[in-house]
């Protein structure tokens, strides 16, 4: 490799060890926060999935074990947790579609000469409006979750 390139790479090593803070480094924009939210929601869903698999497994132990488990879990705090899962899944899904479209379609925008003030083509209006759609659908799912979980 060119020694100049090596020198540049050595002076700018990839930033590691900051799984959250990068999202708040300037320039902060909605897409960065969306990536952070995508990761946080993904991790939350994975934790839920892990416990969900084992909680659901109690159905194999018979009616008594299942009803006892459901009695234990049927409280307002657990309902709040389930509501958060509904919200997280909806945001993760719709924002995931936005990211897929960015990768697979021309939504990312045409390449252009980087003139001042250097606005990234990939942060264009098309995907930005999809981000708003994701936020709107998350809000609607939150409302639907309230109706389904609390029967309001």
């Amino acid at each position: 490799m060119d020694s100049a390139v090596v020198a540049i790479e050595k002076s700018n090593p990839p930033r590691r060890g900051t799984p959250v803070l990068w999202a708040f480094r300037p320039p902060v924009h909605l897409e960065r926060l969306a990536l952070l939210a995508q990761r946080v929601s993904g991790l939350a869903i994975l934790v839920y999935l892990f416990f969900h698999i084992f909680v659901t497994g109690t159905v194999t132990e018979g009616r008594g074990a299942w009803e006892s488990t459901m009695d234990t879990l049927s409280n307002p705090l657990m309902h709040l947790g389930e509501w958060l899962v509904v919200v997280a899944v909806t945001f993760h899904a719709v924002n995931g579609i936005r990211v897929l479209l960015l990768e697979l379609t021309p939504l990312v925008g045409r390449p252009a000469r980087p003139d001042y003030p250097y606005e990234a083509q990939s942060l264009g209006r098309g995907q930005h409006s999809l981000l708003y759609v994701a936020m709107l659908m998350t809000s609607l799912a939150g409302l639907a979750g309230i109706v389904i979980l609390w029967g309001l």
Partner: peptide
């Protein structure tokens, strides 16, 4: 996804 997130950390 979890694997990717963990691999991005220094640890």
């Amino acid at each position: 996804g979890l694997r990717n997130i963990v691999l991005e950390t220094r640890w």
